[in-house]
Simulated scan of single mutants.
Amino acid sequence: MIVDKFAALNETVPVKKYRYTYGGAGANVAVASARLKAKSGLFAVSGYDFKKMNYEKCLTEQGVDIRGVIRTSEFPMARSFILSKEESEDQILYYYESKKAVAQLLFHNIHLAKTLAKEYKILHFSTGHFEFYRRFLKKYKGEQIISFDPGQETFSYPYRVIRLLKYCHLLFMNNHEAKRIKEILKLKSIKEIKGPSLICISLGAQGAIILFDGKFYRIPAVKPTRVIDPTGAGDSHRAGFLTALLKGYDIETAGRIASTVASFTIEAEGAQTSLPTWEKVARRYEHFFKEPLPEPSLSWEKTIKMILETKHKC
């Protein structure tokens, strides 16, 4: 909802524009990855309105594997209500009807999660039920790369986030979340975090920084054609980075590709509205960085070996 100003207590303000769009951190990453032609699947609990509101059809048409979507007739899908002042701040309200019932469904289907996980090279964990994540990762014996983006849960349940750090290879945060992790762990530098091989910190319009194997990469933000709505830009950034790794790109180029993918998301309302194809990413990459998109320099086997070896050093 777009407003000229936020309402004070007991005040009513008109809404200039209202849109309903699809979202959810995990689904955003899955859809963005699928648009980039990466094999993509989703494990999550939906609601009784999943099919009715055409989200099931939308995910299927985008090429996302939804065998891991757990249906229920007990409650609706979770959703966010976002109030935005144009080109300014947001207020976000999050509605999640039955967290306990969601947890029960997740734990009941943990074997399904383990079975489907074996079909993928990267497992990406975003905002969700962190106790389920911990149970899954504690006993999971797969060889996949584990990617983790705790998002706003860093502030809601910081200690649950910290307990998962030792299981992940790739850690994604924004600068506010990174600051919170440093405070909780009493660290002087984010480089002191134990566990992840790679840490990527998004800085909004200032781009991102990546820490990997003792090296520091500063990745600029790719300029969009217009700025409409930043919702989901972080998720599409993750999708771009993970897809680039799957294709065999080095860390710095993967960061640049991620920044390019994120720039498209900002150009329309909604997290999944303007996600690009790989061809569009290549054209914008070459226009912004003033060089051809390089050919991948690594096989997936070399990529995973590089990441796993770096984790062993941590």
Rank of each mutant, 00 (worst) to 15 (best):
D65A: 10
I66K: 01
G68R: 03
V69D: 01
V69F: 04
V69A: 09
R71K: 14
R71N: 12
F75R: 05
F75Q: 04
P76Q: 09
M77Q: 12
R79P: 00
S80I: 01
F81N: 08
F81E: 12
L83R: 04
K85L: 05
K85Q: 15
E89D: 14
E89C: 06
Q91E: 11
I92G: 12
Y94S: 12
Y96P: 02
S98A: 11
S98W: 02
A101L: 09
V102T: 09
L105V: 06
H108R: 14
I110M: 12
I110F: 01
K114S: 13
T115V: 01
T115M: 03
L116Y: 02
A117E: 07
K118Y: 05
K118V: 00
E119S: 10
S126Y: 00
T127W: 00
H129R: 03
H129L: 07
E131Y: 03
F132R: 01
R134A: 13
R134G: 01
K138T: 15
K141S: 13
K141H: 10
G142H: 12
E143H: 10
E143W: 08
Q144K: 08
I145K: 05
D149Y: 03
D149I: 01
D149W: 02
P150F: 10
E153Y: 12
S156G: 02
Y159V: 06
Y159S: 15
R160Y: 08
R163L: 10
K166E: 15
H169A: 06
F172K: 08
M173Q: 09
H176Q: 13
I181V: 15
K182D: 05
K188N: 15
I190D: 11
K191S: 14
K194R: 15
P196Y: 10
S197G: 10
L198T: 13
I199N: 04
C200T: 12
C200E: 05
I201S: 10
G204L: 12
G207A: 09
A208P: 07
A208M: 11
I209H: 10
I209N: 13
